[in-house]
Design a protein around this nucleic acid. Structure first.
Lengths: 263, 263
DNA sequence: CACCGTTGTATCTATGCCGATACAACGACG
DNA sequence: CGTCGTTGTATCGGCATAGATACAACGGTG
């Protein structure tokens, strides 16, 4: 939306919901629970949201069938009764909020996507051959597949497969190329060197793009690769970064994700 | 559901869709595009999926109204015609797959959640007072709010607000406490020290939990805080990590996210 | 020129979800 | 004991979406 910070950074608005037992918990449900918390009754929540009370109640029941008790309801008594958000309902809202935060983050944080082919797989970590050399990262396979989902996404990756390597700009650390750190003192494994090509400064956060030289591989000429790094403006100042500077990039293998890439 | 690999890792199943122009692109649409790519025709794709051909076609049209050309359709000719996935359709599938990868990652990567109150806001970065001291992180506010969305999530954060600080375990770097690195050479700002409390070893990736002492704050006694870090098993070996060891943690402010926490 | 399987297009029907409405049950309070 | 506002429960109609069906248009192929 905003402007020309990144080519496509904000292009991917999304919508996410929790799923348990086949029941989706989406923004509408979150709003309902929040309204119940605010109003102290399902009836009040429904009228505040302009929704049907009976529907709201039955919706809560189907949610509770899947997620457990969410709202403690009581009828009769002072004020005719009322409903309070249960602790587990609050937890569910927290989970939902965190999911939304992750989604907003992926939409607003630029990512670098490289094509590559899997060289080797060792447990959860795969080594991928890319234009800028071998990179290692996690492939999402945490054991199970989304049952009601898609077709061929995520899932397993095998040696030789074409994949995309996804590096979130917030995972990349920028160092002065001169002061090289002892490689044995840190758990960040992927490293590259390159030259700063552009700095997009935000208020307190800057997106630094670093041009990385492709490795020499026979006749095949690869286009230059730009890796984005999101760092605080303060760090830009502290490192004295300016276009043309040589820097070293570093990020953890566990912050790198592989996506199976059909074709 | 599955079993006891991780305590709760798979608890947060989710479902995400891209949204553009009010039109959702979800797993069902992804499966349709993939089937078109495989079958070479919308008719073949529909029958392969057991869906109505006419509906599939009209669905593709509404998708194209929002996302641009996705499928190149041709009628008449050899084989009676056919359809091919356009390049932009392939790109859209890639975007969707990456979104799914992010979602799967957040479901499988542990995160540390701390409660805190916002101390100060400086642009996109906020400083939050937590049980383990002041931490800085991004608040999702990228300028706009989800129109058709929720109520009080994400959005803006103000000084004094209670928030949750979310730290993905894949963003935390573990260092030997002894060999302290020159603080001016790196752009990672948040740092803590603590003792390793537990190491859950996967095949090649381990989740290390580090107990961090809460800062002393008068009479108020806070429970000990455990921060999770996801690092390669190789790094565990290289650093010689074992329960009880003193380590220093480090992660970037830009990899820390704040979630407004009602109440 | 007829054939073929596909893309377009229109229409009818079934299904599921939501709002609207109505009524019974509940229990503290006055 | 009646009042009150809520929770439960059932039913009806509206609306959007998907499937089913039918038919026209298209353009290589034989």
């Amino acid at each position: 939306m905003s402007d020309a910070t990144g080519p496509d950074a904000a292009a991917g608005r999304g919508h996410a919901a929790l799923v348990e037992d086949g029941v989706e918990f989406d923004g509408r449900d979150a709003a309902l629970l929040r309204a119940v918390d605010a109003a102290g009754s399902v009836a009040g929540a429904a009228s505040a949201l302009g929704r049907s009370r009976a529907r709201a109640l039955s919706r809560i029941e189907t949610l509770e069938d899947a997620y457990g008790t969410l709202v403690e309801r009581r009828r009769g008594g002072e004020g005719g009764g009322g409903s309070r958000l249960a602790a587990s309902g609050r937890d569910l809202l927290d989970r939902y909020d965190r999911l939304q935060a992750v989604l907003a983050a992926t939409a607003s944080v630029p990512e670098t996507v490289l094509r590559g082919t899997v060289e080797a797989i060792d447990g959860e970590i795969a080594v991928v051959d890319t234009a800028v050399g071998a990179l290692s990262g996690l492939h999402g396979a945490t054991g199970d597949e989304d049952a009601g989902g898609d077709g061929s996404d995520g899932g397993t990756v095998a040696a030789g497969d074409p994949v995309q390597v996804r590096i979130g700009a917030d995972a990349v650390t920028v160092n002065d190329a001169a002061s090289e750190v002892d490689p044995d003192a840190t758990s960040a494994r992927n490293r590259l060197t390159g030259r700063v090509s552009r700095i997009d400064s935000g208020e307190t956060v800057s997106t630094v793009r670093i041009g990385v030289e492709p490795v020499d591989r026979g006749e095949r000429v690869e286009a230059a690769v730009e890796v984005a790094a999101l760092i605080t403006a303060e760090s830009v100042g502290r490192l004295g970064l300016a276009p043309g500077d040589r820097v070293s990039l570093r990020w953890k293998a566990t912050a790198t994700r592989l996506v199976a890439h059909a074709e």
